[in-house]
Amino acid sequence: MSEKKTHRRDFLFTATYAVGAVGVGAVVWPMIDQMNPDASVKALASTEVDISSMNPGKTITVLWRGKPVFIRRRTQDEIAEAKSVSLKDLKHPEKDEDRAKNPEWLVMLGVCTHLGCVPLDQKGDYNGWFCPCHGSHYDTSGRIRKGPAPTNMEIPKYEFVNANTIKIG
């Protein structure tokens, strides 16, 4: 073929490759997507927690989607400490008001944002949480203050169903 001319065969090749690529994609995608969370995992989307017996200064840990969630009834000192921090001192600036709608209750994922360990309660240099794995320090609002973690501990979607019950998810 010396001249640039489109032949019937070129068309057939292109058409074959195109249909072949679609076919391969249609087979490969289910193989990949089967590894994503399945329906039974997604079904465990929300958890209700009874908080009626919690006094100030107490933390409970509940499982939500296989992950620990810290629910802490904070003391007045802790709230004051969290509110007094200047945003300039924070690696991931977030106001305490935005993290705890009801300042007495801090609800957050108990998962270190570095590599996913569970930080220890009431430890570290900022009276909040301390991750034993790689040494991240969090303050009384769960904000990262020191160490390798890039962001504050995540706040999940939650609501107060009534005065004694929190619904997470």
């Binding site: 994503n36 296989g66 992950k67 590599l115």
Partner: peptide
């Protein structure tokens, strides 16, 4: 969780690797 360091798609990859929202 090392994969979560990848920008944008990191979290999605980790969830895909786990087949859930945590190791299970």
């Amino acid at each position: 969780n090392l994969f979560s360091a990848i920008p944008l798609v990191g979290e999605g990859i980790v969830t895909w690797l786990w087949g859930g929202y945590s190791v299970d």
